[in-house]
Amino acid sequence: MTVAGPNSAVVGAVLQPAVAGKLAVAGKLTIDGDASVLEAYGALLDEFDPDFPIVTP
């Protein structure tokens, strides 16, 4: 599988594979090959809460 596009779009697809399809539909990415590989990769990643408390009182 090959993912091509601007650097920011490719990084977005690697860090958040769920948005890769939306970026491809918008014309910002081109995905050649089996796109299910990107979905399988995304299933391996954890989603973290960006507002987690670093220090709790």
Results as ranks from 00 to 15, higher is better:
residue 10 V to S: 02
residue 29 L to R: 02
residue 48 F to H: 09
residue 33 G to K: 03
residue 17 P to T: 05
residue 15 L to K: 00
residue 5 G to C: 08
residue 54 I to L: 15
residue 8 S to A: 14
residue 43 A to H: 01
residue 47 E to Q: 08
residue 34 D to G: 12
residue 29 L to P: 00
residue 53 P to H: 14
residue 33 G to S: 12
residue 22 K to R: 10
residue 35 A to C: 04
residue 27 G to Y: 07
residue 51 D to I: 03
residue 25 V to S: 11
residue 15 L to A: 11
residue 36 S to E: 07
residue 15 L to P: 03
residue 13 A to V: 01
residue 38 L to I: 09
residue 12 G to A: 13
residue 8 S to D: 11
residue 52 F to Q: 05
residue 52 F to T: 07
residue 50 P to N: 02
residue 13 A to S: 04
residue 16 Q to D: 08
residue 30 T to A: 06
residue 56 T to R: 11
residue 29 L to G: 13
residue 5 G to K: 02
residue 21 G to W: 01
residue 13 A to I: 01
residue 39 E to C: 07
residue 43 A to S: 11
residue 20 A to R: 00
residue 29 L to I: 06
residue 45 L to C: 06
residue 3 V to A: 01
residue 17 P to M: 14
residue 24 A to G: 15
residue 37 V to Q: 15
residue 33 G to F: 02
residue 52 F to R: 05
residue 24 A to D: 10
residue 1 M to A: 11
residue 49 D to V: 02
residue 3 V to C: 02
residue 15 L to V: 02
residue 18 A to K: 04
residue 8 S to K: 12
residue 9 A to Q: 02
residue 49 D to K: 07
residue 39 E to G: 11
residue 11 V to S: 04
residue 57 P to Q: 13
residue 44 L to S: 11
residue 4 A to Q: 14
residue 28 K to T: 08
residue 5 G to A: 05
residue 2 T to H: 09
residue 33 G to W: 01
residue 1 M to H: 14
residue 10 V to R: 00
residue 44 L to W: 05
residue 1 M to Y: 05
residue 23 L to S: 07
residue 25 V to R: 14
residue 42 G to Y: 07
residue 3 V to G: 00
residue 31 I to V: 10
residue 55 V to H: 09
residue 4 A to K: 09
residue 52 F to M: 12
residue 31 I to M: 08
residue 19 V to L: 06
residue 28 K to D: 08
residue 42 G to Q: 13
residue 51 D to E: 10
residue 14 V to L: 12
residue 4 A to D: 14
residue 18 A to I: 11
residue 20 A to M: 06
residue 30 T to H: 13
residue 16 Q to I: 01
residue 26 A to I: 11
residue 28 K to Q: 13
residue 31 I to D: 06
residue 50 P to A: 00
residue 45 L to T: 01
residue 38 L to F: 11
residue 22 K to S: 06
residue 17 P to L: 15
residue 39 E to R: 09
residue 40 A to I: 08
residue 27 G to A: 09
residue 14 V to D: 00
residue 46 D to M: 13
residue 22 K to N: 06
residue 38 L to K: 04
residue 8 S to M: 15
residue 13 A to F: 04
residue 16 Q to K: 01
residue 7 N to S: 09
residue 17 P to G: 04
residue 49 D to S: 08
residue 42 G to T: 05
residue 6 P to V: 07
residue 4 A to G: 11
residue 56 T to C: 15
residue 31 I to A: 03
residue 54 I to P: 01
residue 30 T to E: 10
residue 34 D to E: 15
residue 38 L to E: 03
residue 1 M to K: 12
residue 31 I to R: 02
residue 38 L to G: 01
residue 18 A to N: 06
residue 51 D to K: 08
residue 54 I to R: 11
residue 12 G to T: 02
residue 2 T to N: 10
